[in-house]
């Protein structure tokens, strides 16, 4: 029997494995009906110890679209965790109830503890401020599908670059690809942490830091907007001052390339004006759609159920050139 695989961090998969995963996701997008019964009889457990709308429903949608079923809890207070049960004990039991588990937990590293004890694949659905790998996979698939490649582009990351977990994770994942220029757009207080800059320097990857969107807008192929998160601030005054620092509106979009596209991990507050939603360059809702495709591909991959398609010549194994 092959070793059980889990997903804890976006770099758990090699670039070749990710290519394969994204090939499966693309195939799902184009031939959704072919996948409608791939997971008949399989069960996904969603163990969410803290509330989440998008991530949990995206996982559930992915499994239901594959023909499987879902069970789980959406809040730790409704589970036996409230009675003091450990993550290790919960996953041991879940291993007999389901075939695969997606877990979100406020404590960092909790899904890894689960993976160590689990008899079924565990997917990290977000652990505190640590990792949120399926968001990063969603972002990578969106870029690959809309831009056409994960190499050779200039990406602007705008907003809260200090606390934004998705941004740190995306930058780290993108460093494995070639010829990407990074432009960090943030107020002084929310600059990207030094460890990220050190990582880029160590790999000789160019980046620049600016404070206004306008000055770099014409250079960007992708603009990744983020929300200034209220919960990260101890001081309400600082939050109020910074929350509207960047508002992407149609005036600013006039400066952008015709083919630039805008991403956002959502939920947005007011950093992207609603008037932009109908701009063909607005990709943030499609990004949610890609989130379902990538989770479907991930479920199939971790359940080791993609071979059937590959045998039909629909997909290539990495390295089959």
């Amino acid at each position: 029997m092959e070793r059980l695989r889990h997903l804890m961090s976006p770099t758990d998969f090699t670039v070749e494995e990710l290519d394969h995963l994204f090939d499966v996701a693309e195939d799902i997008r184009k031939n959704m009906a072919d996948y409608a019964h791939k997971c008949d009889g399989k069960i996904l457990a969603t163990c969410f110890y803290e509330p989440s709308t998008r991530t949990r429903l995206s996982f559930e949608s992915a499994m239901l679209r594959l023909g499987g079923k879902v069970l789980g809890f959406a809040d730790g207070s409704n589970s036996s965790a409230a009675k003091g049960e450990s993550v290790s004990d919960t996953i041991r039991v879940m291993s007999y109830y389901a075939d695969i588990c997606a877990m979100r937990h406020p404590k960092e590293g909790a899904p890894m503890v689960a993976a160590e004890k689990s008899l079924i694949p565990v997917i990290n659905g977000g652990d505190g401020g640590h990792q949120h790998p399926t968001q990063t996979l969603t972002d990578l698939l969106t870029i690959r599908s809309l831009y056409g490649s994960l190499n050779n582009f200039t990406i602007g990351l705008c907003g809260d670059l200090k606390f934004g977990r998705t941004v740190h994770s995306l930058i780290t994942a993108l460093t494995r690809y070639e010829n990407i220029n990074y432009v960090f757009i943030s107020p002084e207080e929310l600059k990207v942490p030094s460890y990220i800059k050190e990582m880029l320097k160590a790999k000789n990857i160019p980046y620049k830091q600016v404070t206004t969107l306008e000055e770099v807008m014409p250079d960007l192929d992708i603009l990744y907007m983020t929300r200034v998160q209220k919960e990260r601030f101890f001081n309400e005054e600082d939050y109020v001052r910074l929350k509207d620092f960047y508002i992407l509106d149609s005036q600013k979009m006039k400066l952008a390339k015709e083919k630039m596209f805008i991403m956002h991990p959502l939920p947005r507050v007011n950093e992207i004006a609603v008037e932009i939603d109908d701009d063909p360059r607005a990709a943030y809702f499609r990004q949610s759609e890609y989130g379902v495709f990538v989770r479907m591909a991930l479920i199939l991959t971790l359940l080791d159920m993609t071979d059937e398609h590959m045998n039909q010549g629909l997909l290539r194994h990495p390295g089959d050139m």
């Binding site: 450990s86 993550v87 937990h105 406020p106 404590k107 960092e108 590293g109 503890v113 652990d127 401020g129």
Partner: peptide, 10 residues
């Protein structure tokens, strides 16, 4: 915020 702060026997 680490799981080691609450998980028994970890």
């Amino acid at each position: 915020r680490c799981i080691t702060s609450i998980e028994q026997g970890l």
